[in-house]
Amino acid sequence: MNPVRTIESATICLPTANIDTDQIIPARFLTTTERSGLGRHAFHDWRYDEDGTPNPEFVLNQPASRGAQILVSGPNFACGSSREHAPWALLDAGIRAVISSEIADIFRNNALKNGLLPIVLPQSVVDTLLAQQGIRLQIDVAKRRVYWPSGDHLEFALEPFAQTCLLEGVDELGYLLKHAAAIQRYEELAHVA
């Protein structure tokens, strides 16, 4: 994984509450055996009309969203499935951070493993952000801070291990493999035949 230290970008706002993983990437696109290429299907059923033409009303299709990397969403983002295709699709669509007042457990885990930053902020702050579509934010992972254009900032919580992994680009599998001796010992002690 490449290190993630700072993100600076305009926001894309999706005020809907309880956006589930079936919206982020509908199941019919899960027959792929790859991680890449899912970006074009992100939010597919909101993004395209019946005949496949992009819906101009949908925020991701608007010119202002081009190149934006920070998604601000209504509460309880990405509830539902364990499909890692959800963070893969968002990353492939250029999103590098998601801000919401609540982010579902499994998604948060999956996102961090792929360098997508889940940020939980109070609903009142998220509401303010939702009212300012396109505002430029700066995110500092080392300081765990979101900076507003004014220079004001807010801190967010980030599990220390996940933070180290992001900052140093640590790969969790590599970390686990270093514990081979302890795993071996456990198997012997626990009689995992």
């Binding site: 969790e172 493999l177 514990h179 795993i183």
Partner: peptide, 12 residues
């Protein structure tokens, strides 16, 4: 679990 963790369980 997600697919990354599926890989973790396979290897370790």
């Amino acid at each position: 679990i997600g697919s990354s963790e599926v890989g973790h369980v396979m290897a370790t």
